[in-house]
Amino acid sequence: MAARAKINFGDFRMRLLRAAGIVIASMLPPAAWAADMNAVRQAPARDWSGFYLSAGGGFGWWSADQYTDFGGFPAPGPSVGTSGSGGFATVGGGYDWQFAPNWVAGAFADAQFGDIRGSIKAPFEQYSGTTSNRLNFAAGLRLGVLATPDVLIYVDGGYGHAEFTGSGLDPTPLVPLSVAGQHYDGWFVGGGVENTLDFTGIASPGWSMKTEYRFADYGRRSAGMYVDATGAPDSAIAFKPKVQTLSFSLVYRFNEAGSTPF
């Protein structure tokens, strides 16, 4: 009777594991290809460096502490707080530099034109009027990080300038008085998000949108009151406004090949 073949289970198990390893390895991408794909996923899809222009609008509000000022000295009466709100349009421009590779730094300047209207008061005489923040200028720097290749999150700050209109005062005294328009210099800080318009599904090279909040603080100044008939100076209203704005803007960058603003 022929001898039965002896099965070496250890050798069979090794061959099975080797075959399974070959199959699994064949299903995996080559290391070089995997590294290239990882680099593509991490590399920014666009270059944020270059000049840009922006335009848009938004909503603003301000608050101010006031008291009657007699020759540089506050009146013995109380101080009051007033506020205002309203809309505005904005235009601006700047330059950004992308580095390291997901950081963006830049310089910019812009202006806001609107009617952020509220009250101005002389508490000692109990006079009041209406003033409007019609114009704001800003120039500063910003620093941001790319959360994705198409989304920039940033903070900014710098110099701010604000202008407020003059007003007649009520209740009308025996000698009608008005308060002069004033301009203020100060500083601002803010932050926002800028993202490309690719999420709309429409190819829009060069275009993005920006949403930004700012807080501006201006030094205290005296808004002088004067006699309407003669223009002679009277007392003054010490006025120190703080202005906050929320704006939405379209941005066009000139650095993208094939992009055209119109």
Rank of each mutant, 00 (worst) to 15 (best):
P176H: 01
H161A: 01
N195M: 13
G206Y: 01
Y213H: 11
Q244D: 13
G190Y: 06
I202E: 01
G219W: 07
L246Y: 14
S249I: 03
K210H: 12
Y159W: 13
G186Q: 08
T165G: 05
P176M: 03
D234A: 11
K240Y: 02
G192C: 07
Y213E: 10
A232C: 04
P176N: 01
G191P: 14
G206V: 08
V189E: 01
S235E: 09
D228W: 08
S249H: 06
S178M: 03
D170L: 12
F164E: 02
A203C: 04
G160R: 00
F215D: 09
G231D: 08
T196R: 07
F164W: 02
G224D: 14
D234L: 07
V189R: 00
M209K: 08
G158W: 04
A238V: 04
F199W: 15
F239I: 05
N195G: 14
P205S: 10
L174Q: 14
S235Q: 15
T211L: 15
L174N: 15
G168T: 09
G157F: 03
D198N: 10
D170R: 12
Y218V: 04
I202D: 01
Y159P: 07
S167P: 05
H183C: 02
Q244L: 08
A238G: 06
G192W: 05
A223N: 15
G219H: 10
S247N: 15
G224P: 05
L174A: 14
S178D: 11
T245P: 13
G219S: 14
H183L: 04
